[in-house]
C-alpha cells in the first residue's frame, strides 16, 4: 500500500513541477495593430468560401464572423458565400433562389461540411485538419496563417461596365513572382452584396436579412479555367478576359468580381486572389 501512495505522490509532484513557456498573444483586433491601407500586388490576399443556406440557423453567425475578420484584415480577406447543400432550399417567401449550378458543383468539388457554419479557406487542407471544410472556430487562425505566406503570382482585375446592355467585361492579368512549375487555373466569380431576403436566424425567420457576398455566377468553369499546364516562370505574365450580361434582378452597384489563381486538380490550392467592384 505504501508503494501505491508513493506512486500517487510522485505523480502529483510531477504535475506540480510542470511549467511551460506560453505563446505570445497580440491583439490584431486592436486599432493600433490594424491597417486600413489597400493591399499591393505583392500582398497576399486570402479567399474564404463560406457554405451556407437560407435554412441554416447558425450560418448568420458565420457571416458575422467573416464581417468581423474583414474588418480586421481589410481588403486582404475576400469572401464568397455559396448557397448549396442541405440547408439551401429556399423558403416559399424567398425572393431569390441563391443556389447556383456552379455552387453545387463547387461543394461537390470541395466536400460537404460536417456542420454549419463551415468554410473553405484558400482551398487548402491545413496542417491540423483532414478536410477542406473547416468550422467557424478555426477560420481566424487559418486565414492569418495564409496571409503570412507571400503570393507566388499577382492577380490584377480590370472591370468595365456597359450600362446600356448591362454587360460587364473583365480582364484578369498578372505575372509570377517566382517559378511556379505546376498546372495553374483561374476561377472567376460574380458576387452580390446587400441582398435582402429571407434567412433563418437564431431569432427566427428574418424576412429582411442582409445576405453578403452571395455567389451569383462563375464566369469560369466551376473548377477553374486552365491557364497553363507547365506553370509560369519568373515575371512570365498571363491574361484572360470574360464578359457577362447581368440579369435585371441583380443590383450591379452591389456586384463584385472575384478572381483567384489556384493549382489544377482537386481541390487546387489557391495561391493568390483579388476582388473588384463592377462599378467603382
Amino acid at each position: 500500500m505504501k508503494k501505491h501512495i508513493l506512486l500517487l505522490s510522485l505523480s502529483i509532484l510531477l504535475l506540480a513541477g510542470c511549467d511551460e513557456n506560453m505563446p505570445v498573444i497580440d491583439c490584431l483586433s486592436c486599432p493600433s495593430n490594424t491597417t486600413t491601407e489597400p493591399p499591393e500586388d505583392e500582398d497576399r490576399r486570402v479567399i474564404i468560401e463560406e457554405f451556407t443556406g437560407v435554412r441554416c440557423v447558425n450560418c448568420p453567425q458565420g457571416s458575422d464572423e467573416i464581417k468581423n475578420l474583414q474588418a480586421i484584415h481589410g481588403e486582404r480577406l475576400i469572401a464568397v458565400s455559396i448557397h448549396a447543400g442541405f440547408f439551401s432550399t429556399p423558403y416559399a417567401d424567398n425572393i431569390f433562389d441563391f443556389r447556383t449550378p456552379e455552387g453545387t458543383d463547387i461543394q461537390g468539388l470541395l466536400g460537404e461540411p460536417l456542420g454549419y457554419p463551415s468554410a473553405v479557406i484558400d482551398r487548402k487542407i491545413f496542417s491540423n485538419e483532414n478536410e477542406l471544410q473547416v468550422a467557424q472556430a478555426s477560420w481566424a487562425g487559418h486565414i492569418a496563417e495564409d496571409l503570412a505566406i507571400a503570393p507566388k503570382v499577382s492577380v490584377s482585375l480590370d472591370a468595365s461596365w456597359n450600362d446600356a446592355n448591362r454587360q460587364v467585361d473583365v480582364t484578369v492579368s498578372g505575372a509570377a513572382f517566382e517559378d511556379v512549375n505546376d498546372e495553374l487555373r483561374l476561377t472567376v466569380f460574380i458576387t452580390e452584396n446587400s441582398v435582402f431576403d429571407v434567412q433563418l436566424t437564431p431569432d427566427g425567420i428574418n424576412n429582411n436579412y442582409e445576405h453578403r457576398h452571395v455567389l451569383r455566377k462563375a464566369l469560369s468553369t466551376f473548377d477553374g479555367d486552365l491557364l497553363t499546364t507547365e506553370g509560369l516562370g519568373v515575371n512570365e505574365d498571363y491574361s484572360k478576359t470574360y464578359s457577362y450580361v447581368l440579369p435585371d434582378i441583380w443590383d450591379e452597384t452591389n456586384c463584385d468580381i472575384v478572381a483567384f489563381i489556384h493549382y489544377g486538380g482537386s481541390p487546387g490550392e489557391v495561391i493568390q486572389a483579388n476582388e473588384v467592384h463592377i462599378i467603382e
Partner: peptide, 8 residues
C-alpha cells in the same frame, strides 16, 4: 492556429 485565432 490557436494563437492566430486569439490574435483576432
Amino acid at each position: 492556429t490557436i494563437v492566430n485565432t486569439v490574435n483576432t
